[in-house]
Design a protein around this nucleic acid. Structure first.
Length: 269
DNA sequence: GGCCAGGTTCTAC
DNA sequence: GTAGAACATGGC
């Protein structure tokens, strides 16, 4: 399917550190496994993307996944034309970034893994988890793997998880998966909770603190006001803004601002 | 080979 | 309530 949308850049999204299973195949094409499906995306032009999916899957999965009903263009343009010099540069540099609506359990586990790991290492762990506990997807004689369900992960052995390279996070992942699988926390219910209530419930899970909970809120619950602060964002807030950054200016879309900051500081030369 | 990575938890005041 | 250390491992 050919999708026309302003502010939709696959390369920027793939390298934005919000999703870990989007990989480059060649110059303009990336692949992705999410929600049990395999797709390829090709950037055909600044506002044109081809997705290898049926019209039905586009309407029921990918349109929402890539948040294509939301007008990022307006916000990004206002940042580019705004008074904040750093954000002007960041918005221009990362133009095309969007906040994805990803699977809650996958986001939860992925960001528990992310603590004190760099992005290549996170991706490696997630691929191995999927290969070991996910389902196979065959595509053109290649095999891909879905992200494991809570039930499958909750039945993993700690020693098996340790072999994947998860380190001390193995217990966090096991216990969190068990909490989801046995109903101690209802992830779907979080979607109808306030940010405060969702954060409180998430932070009760082992391995989930303020930053991971914010990432779940932003990338899983699509609370685009959430503003996760990791080492890179903290560095910006300190070095660029002398810890005087006024978050309130961006009420209603602070998470988008955060994403452009992160992408810019990580990728600019 | 040492430093750092999209932090959280535990301990000690 | 909050500062400081401990935590496993791999990428660069």
């Amino acid at each position: 399917m050919i999708i026309q949308s302003k502010n939709f850049n696959i390369k920027h999204i793939a390298d934005s550190g919000q999703c870990f299973r989007m990989n480059q195949m060649n110059q303009d094409t990336y692949n992705l496994v999410a929600f049990g499906k395999y797709i390829e995306l090709t950037q055909q032009g600044p506002d044109t993307i081809e997705i290898t999916c049926s019209e039905e899957d586009y309407e029921t999965i990918w349109k929402e996944y890539f948040d294509l009903s939301y007008q990022y263009d307006t916000i990004v343009t206002s940042l580019i034309n705004g008074e904040d010099i750093f954000l002007r540069e960041a918005a221009a540099y990362g133009s095309g970034l969007r906040i994805l609506k990803q699977d809650l359990f996958e986001i939860l586990i992925s960001f528990i893994i992310s603590q004190r790991k760099n992005i290549p290492a996170i991706k490696s762990c997630i691929e191995q988890l999927s290969k070991k506990y996910g389902d196979k997807i065959n595509h053109n004689n290649q095999t891909f793997y879905t992200f494991p369900t809570p039930e499958r992960l909750s039945n993993a052995k700690q020693s098996e998880l340790r072999e994947i390279g998860l380190g001390y996070r193995d217990v966090y992942i096991l216990k969190t998966s068990q909490a989801v699988a046995n109903g101690d926390i209802d992830l779907l219910k979080l979607k109808s909770c306030s940010n405060e209530e969702a954060m409180n419930q998430l932070k009760n899970l082992p391995g989930v603190g303020i930053k991971v909970a914010n990432c779940v809120a932003l990338y899983g619950l699509h609370q685009i006001d959430a503003f996760p602060i990791d080492v890179w964002i903290a560095r910006i807030l300190n070095d660029i803004y002398n810890n005087q950054f006024e978050l309130e200016q961006y009420n209603g879309y602070a998470g988008i601002v955060q994403q452009y900051m992160f992408y810019y500081i990580r990728n600019k030369k």
